[in-house]
Amino acid sequence: MATNRLCIEFEKTGLRSIIGPNGAGKTTFINIITGRIPASSGKVHFQGAEITNKPTHELVKLGICRTFQITSIFNNLTVFENVRIAKQANSGGSLRIFSTKKSLKKVACDTWVILERLGLKDLAGLPAKNMSYGDQRILEVAIALAGDPEILFLDEPTAGMSPAETKHISDLIKGLSKEISIVLVEHDMDMVMRISDKITVLHYGSIIAEGAPEEIRTNQLVREAYLGKDT
């Protein structure tokens, strides 16, 4: 799905949700920003510098991190190793071929902090593939957080989660948005309305509305996009 002449500016902190009917181009949009697919035209700027079509790993170093709609973790590594590799990749030391993994003390420490914060500490030694689906979704967020993001893109973090798990993760996201900029793509409208600071509505690859949750709730164009013109 293509996106068409989008112009969005993200704040330094806060929670911005991107919603829209299926096929609106939400995921495509964040795929382009995070370097998963190349932009055929248009420009992406980050902190004053142009970053259009930069390699993914360089974008991560700048602080642009993301999670995936379809869980993407390191299956045969433990929960701890999953987060540690992300931490290590952004702290240097990956070329220390004759040190042990344990020698990177700061990396290990930071890893424990993230696991603690996300409530994954007790699962640290478990291979990621043996976790429950809900926990894997949380691990996905933990891996992204380990990249020290300035802006974090979350692609449907609660897809397939139970109400309790959804509550846990939405509280977590809300907490994070006080420190960094969060961009949330989500289908769960209750959650979006409850925790977003600002909402952008996409339809056929274009922005049809932008504003605070109350404004979006009452916006006529948005209602039409979701429910059809007749209503």
Partner: peptide, 29 residues
């Protein structure tokens, strides 16, 4: 064995497990 157990070895294993994810944690795959 030493090299494989090093932080460098951890990077190789991450690439084996999930190349795309490895790139998205900041590894120059």
């Amino acid at each position: 064995r030493r090299i494989i157990s090093s932080p460098f070895g951890a990077v190789l294993e991450a690439i084996r497990e999930n190349e795309e994810r490895a790139a998205f944690v900041g590894i120059n795959v």
